[in-house]
Design a protein around this nucleic acid. Structure first.
Lengths: 228, 228
DNA sequence: ACTCGTTTTTGAACACGTTCAGGAGAGGAA
DNA sequence: TTCCTCTCCTGAACGTGTTCAAAAACGAGT
C-alpha cells in the first residue's frame, strides 16, 4: 500500500523538523548546521534537502508546529469564559507561553520574514496553512463570546484580530524585558481597547467607519502577493 | 610620511566599497561573491576582509555613501525655498532619487537591519555617522525655513523628522508600484500634515502634548542599544 | 517471483563566506 | 645603510549551505 510509504515519509519529514527546532533552540539558527540536523534526525544531508528546499524552509515547519500548539494551548482559556476580553487575553497569553522557547530565535526569523517576497512572511502563500489556523482560532475567540459585532465587520474580524496578534508578536520580538513584562503590559493595555471597539462597532455613529474596514483590508490584500 | 600610506589605504577601502556596490546593483546581494568584489577592486579576498569584517559590513559603506549623496542632492531644493513643506518634500524626493538604484537591494538590507541588535540597524552605534548626517540635514530643513516651532520640541524636531523619513523609507522598501507612485503619494499626503503639526506646535492648547515628545523620545532611546 | 516506474535516500562534490599564517612594503631610529 | 615595527596585503585552507548522479527501497502490474 502507498499509505505505508507516505506515512514513513511523513515521519521522516517530522523527524527532520523536530531535530532542526531542537538544535535551533539549543544553539541558535546560525550555529546549527544542516549536517548536525541530518545527523540528529538519523538521515543524510541530501535527504533533508529532499524534503526542505533550504535551511530557511525548515522554519516554515516551525510556523506550522507553533500554530498547532497555539490552538491546543488556547483551548483551556477558551473553554473557561465567554467574555471576549478574557478570551482574547487568554489566547494571546497562550501564544506567549507556546512561543517562549523560541524568543531568542524570533529576531532571526522575523528578519527573514521582513524581506519582501520571502516565503517566511506570514502573508505569503507558503504560510497559508498556519495563517488559516490562526485566523480560525480568532474566529473561535469571537464566536464563542457573548459579544455581537456589527454585520459590516463580522466576516473580517477574525483576520483583523490576527493582524492585531501580529502586532503583539512584532513587539514581542524586540522585547528584552524580564519575563516579557512589557509585552504583557501591552496585551493588558490593548485587549480592553479591542474589546470596546468590537462592542462599539454596532453603534450607529461608527457604522460608516466600520463599513470602510473591509475596503481597507481588500486594498491591503492587493499589495502583497498572498494567494488566499 | 604616514600620510601617504593612510591615503592609499583609504583609497583601497573606497575601491572595495565601490566595487561591492556596483556589483550589488548589477547582480543583487546574494549573487555577488566576495571573490568577485575583490577581483573587481583589484585586491585579494583577504584584503577585503582586512577592511571589512564581513560581507554585510560592506553595506555599512553603502549607508555612508547614501547619506553623503543625500545631503548633496538636497542642497538644490533647500536653496530654492524657505517654505517648510517644500523643503521637506524636496529633501525626501532627493532621497528617493539618490536611493533609486538600490531599491531592489533595499529589501535585503532592510531585513538584515530589522534583526534586533544588528549593526546595520539605523539606530545602531555603527550607523552613528550616517544617522548624524541625516539628522543634521533635517535640522537644516527646519532652520532654513520660515516656520517657528515650539521651544519644547525644537531640539528634538530634527530627529523626529528623521524618524518620519525612516517611515517613508520603510514604505518605499515594500513599494513595487511603477515609478514609486505610491511612495510619492505618501510623501505628498503626509508632508502637509507634518508641516501643520510643526506650525501648530506653538498653539497653547497643544503645548502639553508637545512637552511629552522629548519624554517619549527618551523612553524610546532607552529601548535600543544605540550609543549616541 | 520478476520487472518497471516512482519515491526516498545517500554521500561526494561544489561554491561561497570567512580565517589565518605569513609576506611585502613603508616609515622611523640607529 | 641597516634594522625594527607597524600597516597593508596575499592566497591557500576550512566550514557550511546546497546540488546531483546514482543507489536503494517500495508498490503495482504481470
Amino acid at each position: 500500500m502507498a499509505k505505508l510509504q507516505a506515512a514513513k515519509a511523513q515521519r521522516t519529514r517530522e523527524l527532520i523538523v523536530e531535530s532542526a527546532l531542537a538544535l535551533f533552540r539549543e544553539r541558535g539558527y546560525e550555529r546549527t548546521t544542516m549536517r548536525a540536523i541530518a545527523e540528529t534526525a538519523g538521515v543524510s544531508v541530501g535527504n533533508a534537502y529532499y524534503y526542505f528546499g533550504s535551511k530557511e524552509e525548515l522554519v516554515q515547519g516551525f510556523y506550522d508546529q507553533l500554530a498547532g500548539d497555539h490552538v491546543a494551548a488556547a483551548a483551556a482559556p477558551l473553554a473557561a469564559s465567554t467574555d471576549l476580553a478574557e478570551r482574547l487575553r487568554g489566547t494571546l497569553l497562550a501564544w506567549l507561553a507556546v512561543a517562549e522557547p523560541y524568543h531568542a530565535l524570533a529576531g532571526r526569523f522575523f528578519a527573514a520574514a521582513a524581506q519582501p517576497g520571502n516565503p517566511l512572511s506570514p502573508f505569503s502563500a507558503e504560510s497559508h496553512a498556519p495563517r488559516e489556523a490562526e485566523v480560525a482560532l480568532y474566529r473561535e475567540v469571537i464566536e464563542g463570546s457573548s459579544v455581537r459585532v456589527a454585520e459590516e465587520v463580522r466576516a473580517d474580524l477574525p483576520e483583523l484580530l490576527w493582524l492585531y496578534h501580529l502586532g503583539i508578536v512584532l513587539f514581542w520580538v524586540y522585547d528584552t524585558s524580564a519575563d516579557l513584562r512589557r509585552t504583557r503590559a501591552l496585551i493588558d493595555r490593548t485587549v480592553p481597547m479591542v474589546e470596546r471597539l468590537c462592542r462599539l462597532s454596532r453603534l450607529r455613529l461608527l457604522r460608516p467607519l466600520a463599513r470602510q474596514v473591509p475596503q481597507l483590508l481588500a486594498e491591503l490584500r492587493d499589495q502583497d502577493p498572498r494567494t488566499s
